[in-house]
Nucleic acid binder design. Structure first.
Lengths: 225, 225
DNA sequence: TTTAATTTGTGAGATATGTCACATCTTTCT
DNA sequence: AGAAAGATGTGACATATCTCACAAATTAAA
């Protein structure tokens, strides 16, 4: 029986050649699960001893704030998730919810740690990922609080276009109120701002389908808050 | 000559017994520098190949946002700094400035990495620290944007009292405008809120000396935004 | 010590966004 | 298909906070 891990991005993504024996270890201690759009993958506050690898799809990472649910990032496959939990409390410190149909690989923490200690490259890779996340969090926080809504919304649209979907046309995987929870704004404000963007011929929208028609202006808005 | 690293918290802090040879390596490749209150330790945008260990004192970590300088965290010794930079770009992604007289140990990146790969415990320790920072950043971001000013200011005062100085009386190491840059508020707003706290007998202030007289209420304010 | 620079204290007015309220669409479930 | 739940438009109003302005007090520099 062919070990499915061999073809999995878990391995490719880390740009690491795992040894055969390591491959086998991974193969024997993981579980691939499919999630439907909207399904919770990790729930904040729940005990966990798995590292999560998002193989396919897209998910939102969110934590419960003082008054509402705060989306901290939106990630697309392939990527690891739940690392901070894993090394820390064993209690999930945030929730992850699929926003598109997704496939997730649950990897046993023990196996993951063993891999980490046996494979130096893999270790460096994970270290680097964590560093990047931290910096990203800092930057986001600074932008979000200093820019005003239009700027933040522009950011999000550009994020969709440039990183998540890599296209000027895409279907919003989030509701307007979720976008609000992401950029710290009320649902109504997001709605009004989107209408303005349409009015100003920056985007076209049909339902949740978005087409960016004036990316240059959008970037200006993103920068000038 | 006695290797000063032996007594340094670098080692203690990590709860790791470094081997003698590792100690020596560290001893030969580091430089201890003293900074005065207000001095920049790391400057965003500058090339760097050192890991920074804050031995003594206190420092603010800040990044330049769209419109103003954003303080992302305030740290006290002993702690590592600049890790994300180190593993990533080699260009400092944020600035660090001493807010109290401090002592910093610059450790050569190569040596640090070698240590990391040779000492599994040390590696885990650093990994864990990074995870904690990331989570902390998420939580902060959610609080800051969802609470209103009084709540955030209360947070900061409690942070000083409980984590940074571990006392109900302390001297603010930041100006009011810096506190504003930390909690995303204007200097004037901070000032007014502090006056209110004094009026409501929550704190006493003489210059920058603060004494928390009603911590319970302060915590309530912190929670209820 | 004198001067300059930086902080702190306070007021009045402008404004971006939140909040509430309802109508209209969509999607989901039975 | 029909009902229920959720998502989207849009208005009017309240309000927390920013901005500008200027004086007093503190700290640093010359």
């Amino acid at each position: 029986m062919r070990n499915e891990c061999i073809d999995c991005d878990c391995v490719l993504k880390s740009s690491v050649e795992l040894k055969d024996c390591q491959m086998e270890m991974l193969g024997g201690h993981h579980a691939v699960v499919k999630f439907r759009k909207g399904d919770p993958v990790i729930k904040q506050g729940v005990f966990s001893t798995n590292v999560i690898f998002l193989r396919k799809g897209m998910a939102k990472v969110h934590i419960t704030g003082p008054s509402r649910e705060q989306i901290v990032r939106l990630v697309k496959a392939p990527t690891y998730l739940g690392l901070p939990t894993t090394f820390g409390d064993k209690i999930n410190q945030y929730s992850v919810t699929a926003v598109l149909d997704s496939e997730v690989c649950f990897i046993d923490l023990g196996v993951f740690k063993k891999l980490l200690s046996e494979n130096r490259e893999f270790n460096s890779y994970i270290l680097l990922e964590l560093c990047k996340s931290e910096l990203e969090a800092y930057r986001r926080c600074a932008s979000r609080t200093q820019k005003q809504m239009r700027g933040n919304l522009a950011d999000v649209l550009l994020e969709f276009s440039e990183h998540l979907f890599e296209s000027d046309q895409f279907t919003l995987p989030l509701s307007q109120s979720d976008i609000g929870n992401w950029v710290d704004a009320g649902r109504e404000s997001i709605n009004r701002a989107l209408s303005e963007f349409i009015q100003d011929d920056i985007i076209e929208m049909t339902g949740r389908k978005v087409k960016i028609t004036n990316k240059k202006l959008l970037k200006t808005i993103s920068q000038n808050g």
